[in-house]
Each structure stands twice: as C-alpha cells, then as structure tokens.
Simulated assay, not measured.
Amino acid sequence: MDELLTRITAETGLDTATAKRAVGSILAFLSAESDDPAVGTMIKETPGAEDAMAATGGDAYSGGGIMALGAGLMGMGLDMGQIQTVAQDLVAYSKIHAGADTVDRVIASVPGLAQFV
C-alpha cells in the first residue's frame, strides 16, 4: 500500500493520511455496492486494502451510490481530478496484485462505475 500511497500523494498533492482515507472509502464503496465475490477477492489480495478501509475512521462510504461516494471524497478535500487519479491508481495497483480479471469483474459489478475509472 505504501507504493500506491506514494504514487497518489506525488500525483495529487494529497497528504498520505487523506490518500489512505480516500482509498479506503473507495474500497468500502465497492464492498457495499457489489455482491460479486470478486470484491472480497480484490480487497483480500490488494496489500493494505483492509488497513485503508479501517483508516477511514468511520467516514467510509455508507450508501447512496457513486454520487454519495464523490460527495464524501470531496468532503475530505479532494477535487474531481484527484478523485479520478486515486481511483485509477487504485485500480491499476489492484490489478497487479489481485489480477486484471478480478478487478474488471468488480468494476463491471457496480452500476455506473466503469465511466469513472
């Protein structure tokens, strides 16, 4: 996860704690919005994913679809460009560790997500 967070902070200017909370919130969103077992596989096989979800400090996604996730991330101080960078970097990192097929299944299992990543 340190590798991912280093990349995100370098590309977005976010501090490490905010980047980790953002990643955790996106993972919590995926977990809540999809019933595909691929989500659990992705979280389990992506190093640091469970820790990132725990780092949200109760601010993790709690429902409302992709727009609610976006609002929550903006509430953390991210702009749209930063949100897209975090999401794309998380997807790329997860594909390395959990496999492209698994991550692609996750993305396909969440309505409307594919257009954002």
Rank of each mutant, 00 (worst) to 15 (best):
M1D: 13
D2T: 14
E3A: 13
E3K: 14
L4A: 08
T6I: 04
T6K: 14
R7G: 05
R7E: 15
R7H: 14
A10F: 04
A10L: 09
E11V: 05
G13E: 11
G13F: 08
D15K: 04
T16A: 15
T16G: 12
T16I: 13
T18W: 10
A19E: 01
A19V: 07
A22N: 10
A22K: 09
S25F: 02
L27A: 04
A28Q: 08
S31N: 14
A32M: 09
A32Q: 06
S34P: 13
D36R: 02
V39T: 13
G40F: 11
I43D: 03
K44R: 15
E45N: 15
G48P: 05
M53R: 01
A54N: 13
A55S: 15
G57A: 06
G57F: 07
G58C: 00
D59R: 12
A60R: 04
A60D: 01
S62M: 04
S62P: 01
G63W: 08
G64W: 06
I66K: 11
A68N: 09
G70Y: 06
L73M: 01
L73C: 00
M74T: 10
L78Q: 10
D79K: 11
Q82F: 00
I83N: 02
I83K: 11
T85I: 15
V86Q: 06
V86F: 12
Q88K: 10
L90N: 09
V91P: 08
A92G: 02
A92C: 00
K95S: 03
H97Y: 15
A98I: 05
G99H: 07
D101M: 14
D101G: 01
T102M: 12
A108E: 15
A108P: 06
V110D: 01
P111I: 05
P111D: 12
L113T: 10
A114S: 14
